[in-house]
Design a protein around this nucleic acid. Sequence first.
DNA 1: ATGTTC
Length: 475
Amino acid sequence: MGRRQAKDMNGKQITKLGFEKKAIALALTAATARERAGLGRDDILSELYAVKDNPEAYLSGGVYADLARELAAQNAKNRARQGEALRPTPLPYRIWGEDLIEPGATAQMDVAMRLPISRTGALMPDAHVGYGLPIGGVLATEDAVIPYGVGVDIGCSMMLSVLPLAANGLSTDEARALLLKHTRFGAGVSFEKNVRGDHEVLHEETWREQSILRHLYDKAAEQIGTSGSGNHFVEFGTFSLGQADLDLEAGEYLAVLSHSGSRGFGAQVANHYTKTAQDLHPNLDPAARKLAWLPLDTEAGQGYWQAMNLAGRYALANHDLIHARLARALGVKPLVQVSNSHNLAWKQLVGGEERIVHRKGATPAEAGQLGLIPGSMADPGFVVRGRGNAEALASASHGAGRQLGRKAAANTLAKRDVQAYLRERGITLIGGGIDEAPQAYKRIEQVIARQSDLVDVVGQFTPRVVRMDTGSEDV
DNA sequence: ATGTTC
């Protein structure tokens, strides 16, 4: 009779209870033990049902402990899987300058707005396709941060120094010589040891608080004050102020504008935590794989938040040193400096709730907040003042935005056309490449016009002598 | 964007 009962238990009953895979075997083992103890089939089934209903109550020991452990693990996995499911349709979000934005970028933003952690978002008029979140994307999440929602170049940022010198007070040759002497460009590049700069950011305790930061400290110290590659630049130009503002009189000033990020340090932080986030979400829809997030109440989430903010401060320190070297060489102190990060996440109140606002290639634009929106190596950039537009989560574009990808630019643009564009505007270029040609970017005037409800223009910067990294193909 | 990518 006992054998018949065991055979029955082996049959439909256990699967009927909803056990799967490993749990079936564990349930059978436990059931057999209870049979030997003299229990009948119905009693055993009701015990199994109770274990399934509340495995946590059976974890501490007894004949059902192994089964309870397996069921608890399965429940946790199912909960995690549920938490990773994308919404069937994207949450609504507003787009500025939709006529300037390629469909691929809105498609990426749609995926971001289907994440279970997403709450609100917006797309800026310079938007174009990126990894994960599009460049020009603004995304507010709840209690979670997305490493690729910030971008690989954590803390990428802009700085302008308005100098107490006439706009024509520096010759092209002098400007060239200063840029060559005091800036360094290129992947992997650092400053020579005898001229390496120092900055308070390198003396923060933060570097000692996680292993990845300890590991990357030396690289950060070697590379501080450098400019990297791609679209990063340092340039001399003319800052034009139509009316008194920024504690300056109206007029034209010599100015320095730079675009730089957190170099190898930030890139390695981004890659490390992106991998951590992806490992944490193995069942995430492949469409959203690059948008894997870290819950802020986990050690990994806190670790990323700390490292991201350090990379943000480090990137601004790079600008500080670049501008300090050039001002010192000219024997002047800047009259005014403006700077802003455009690849970062911030804690921000959105509709009265605390959200994590990711800006990946977007300028913070709270009411009254100053920001910098460059055009291209040969087009004007703008100092802007935010209007605090709530639907844009108080944001604006971070530049003109690409209209041609790097390969497309190299394949379709003619060198002589790029040279003519530079010559017509009186631009002297050191380094640079065809993939950074002005023609590869949207028209900055159009991009600015599409966001008149996000920012007011304060002044204009016109580049004159520009240094960039050597591109894939010279101009 | 970074040096050559788990």
